[in-house]
Simulated scan of single mutants.
Amino acid sequence: MSRDVRVAVFRPDDERLDDAVELLDSLGADPVADPMLEVRPTGASPEPGEYVVLTSKTGVELAAEAGWEPGDAAVCAIGSSTADALREHGYEVDVVPDEYTSAGLVAALEDRVDGARVEVARSDHGSAVLTEGLAEAGADVHETVLYRLVRPEGSGESAALAADGDLDAALFTSSLTVEHLLDAAAERGVREAAVAGLNDAVVGAIGPPTRETAEAAGIEVDVVPEAADFEALACAVVEAAAPTYHE
């Protein structure tokens, strides 16, 4: 008998988690849905700027719900999913960096923003790489927190599975998913065992910052896709984990 690859996914408990489970099912994997992020909107809306930066689909949705209008601002998206969400809500997108990271967006804007007001609208856990990089390029940077990210109550099933050696792969989509999984493991008294179990599994990180966070915590990362895209991450991780099948 073969056993499906058991893959933990940590996306927020909304359509992103539903889509992730559906994708993993289609890849022949056994998804373990263990949300590590809960979105708590602040009610704020992006403030005016010559450039306005959105960093996530969630941020776009909240800005749209608040009736945000960019006016003459150049609208910047940190990646393709954010850009797609902006277009779906009727916004024009002026800048999408080649590299879908904070550093990539800084590189795309650094020659344009000297003396300009740049509004960064995102979660309360946004990387300082973005705001500090833009400030170093001469921008007048303002940050608006559109939502806070907290760990949902009851999370951590995947930590217990990893600690028991019953997890084949894990898909980390942000540094915060790493930190919250380790917090959940510590609450259950299995942090060390969970790290050991993850190191026997195939671990995927959506981008370099997430990989660095995992590695700093002692988690070995096996897969980082070229594009910071969940589907690319899931496909690469399942493919890497597939040889663990036993006929």
Rank of each mutant, 00 (worst) to 15 (best):
218 G>P: 08
231 E>I: 04
240 A>L: 10
201 A>Y: 03
229 D>N: 12
204 G>M: 05
201 A>D: 07
199 N>E: 07
218 G>H: 03
236 A>D: 10
232 A>C: 08
237 V>D: 00
203 V>N: 01
215 E>C: 11
227 A>C: 06
204 G>C: 13
216 A>R: 14
223 V>D: 03
197 G>V: 00
238 V>S: 13
213 T>S: 12
197 G>W: 00
207 G>R: 09
236 A>Q: 14
243 P>H: 12
205 A>V: 05
233 L>S: 09
230 F>R: 14
198 L>H: 03
225 P>N: 02
245 Y>L: 15
234 A>W: 04
216 A>P: 10
206 I>T: 07
223 V>E: 11
231 E>H: 11
233 L>Q: 11
227 A>G: 14
215 E>R: 07
204 G>D: 08
214 A>S: 06
241 A>P: 11
233 L>A: 11
208 P>V: 08
218 G>R: 02
241 A>R: 03
208 P>N: 07
245 Y>N: 15
208 P>F: 06
233 L>N: 13
222 D>H: 08
220 E>G: 13
240 A>S: 15
228 A>C: 09
214 A>M: 08
211 R>K: 13
235 C>D: 15
242 A>Q: 12
201 A>C: 13
197 G>P: 01
222 D>I: 07
205 A>E: 01
212 E>C: 06
215 E>T: 12
245 Y>M: 15
237 V>R: 02
226 E>S: 13
218 G>I: 00
211 R>M: 07
225 P>R: 01
206 I>C: 09
223 V>T: 09
228 A>K: 01
223 V>G: 03
216 A>K: 09
205 A>G: 10
209 P>M: 09
203 V>L: 01
236 A>K: 07
238 V>P: 10
221 V>S: 05
220 E>H: 06
215 E>Y: 05
200 D>K: 11
230 F>K: 08
200 D>P: 00
210 T>Y: 05
233 L>P: 01
213 T>R: 15
243 P>N: 09
211 R>F: 02
217 A>M: 02
240 A>E: 15
221 V>E: 04
206 I>W: 04
202 V>L: 04
203 V>K: 00
244 T>M: 15
212 E>G: 12
216 A>G: 11
213 T>G: 05
209 P>D: 08
224 V>A: 05
241 A>E: 01
212 E>V: 07
231 E>V: 14
200 D>R: 08
210 T>V: 13
218 G>D: 02
244 T>W: 08
226 E>K: 08
